[in-house]
């Protein structure tokens, strides 16, 4: 397993006192046609935390994270990143953010190296910095050998990794990752977790969405459970899960279990 190289530290000092959260969502609403995707979500993501956002399919996780990163305008509510209003001063606040959205394309006719370079240059980094960080990130993501392969020819896991590298290249203070581990192989996932833990240890903040409860329980220190556009529970992982496992607690909160009785014919002994 390659050792994660030195990644750029999050720029700037961490806010004095934990009073100002890295991300504060306040009363976010979003409607698509007649469907209300997010119905008044408020969340505080403390600076320096590793925050998990969990929920069933269609809970509004992606919509929430899109609004938190400037990709989707909320119908109502505010987003503050380290105390600054994202939708009031988008250009300044987006410098603090590293984003990995889910279910979108990349500029996949670029090579992996070009794509990371592109992300760095868009954030206003100079050529030497971009070159050095691109090389570091390609190594960290185990993409060295495929640096000059077009991203369109990458596997799903490699695509995730290169997108994550793009989110990291400008050393953001807050990382917002939508399903970062989907389709990523276990070794790469472990490497990525190491990178993220190192990033949090050096003062950065990470918020990830996932529906793999085990992963969130092991990796995150905070968690919020959302369903049908509402926050059902939020806090440290231990607070939320109490005595049970996060998965059991999640099922208990969200509901919707069905028993397997209906598929009796599926039992191979029946013939």
């Amino acid at each position: 397993m390659p050792t994660p190289p030195d990644l750029p530290d999050p720029t700037g000092p961490v806010d004095a006192g934990a009073a100002v959260p890295a991300l504060r969502l306040d009363g976010l609403w979003r409607r698509f046609g007649r469907k209300i995707a997010v119905a008044g979500i408020s969340l505080d993501v403390p600076a320096g935390s590793f925050y998990g956002l969990v929920g069933p399919n269609g809970a509004g996780k992606t919509t929430t994270l899109s609004m938190a990163t400037g990709l989707l305008e909320p119908d109502a509510g505010t987003v503050h990143v380290h105390g600054r209003d994202l939708w009031a001063e988008p250009v300044a606040v987006k410098r603090l953010l590293g984003v990995l959205p889910d279910g979108v394309r990349l500029f996949d006719r670029l090579t992996g190296e070009q794509l990371i370079t592109y992300a760095g240059l868009l954030h206003g980094l100079d050529r030497d910095t971009v070159a050095a960080r691109t090389a570091d990130l390609l190594t960290a993501m185990d993409l060295r050998a495929d640096a000059s392969t077009l991203v369109v020819d990458y596997s799903a896991g490699m695509t995730k990794k290169v997108a994550l590298a793009c989110a990291l290249v400008h050393a953001p203070r807050l990382l917002v990752l939508d399903e970062p581990f989907e389709a990523v192989d276990p070794v790469s996932a472990a490497n990525i977790r190491d990178i993220l833990h190192g990033y949090v240890a050096s003062g950065g903040t990470v918020i990830v969405s996932s529906h793999v409860m085990d992963l969130v329980q092991r990796m995150c220190d905070h968690v919020a459970v959302v369903a049908q556009g509402h926050v059902l529970a939020a806090g440290t992982v231990d607070e939320v899960r109490g005595e049970s496992s996060l998965e059991d607690r999640f099922v208990e909160l969200v509901g919707g279990r069905v028993t397997g009785e209906e598929l009796a014919w599926l039992r191979t002994s029946s013939d």
Binding site: G70, L71, V99, G103, V104, R105, C166
Partner: peptide
Amino acid sequence: DGSAFWTHLAAPLR
């Protein structure tokens, strides 16, 4: 650009 346009939106790009 298609949905890859998000790259520009997420960057501090005027």
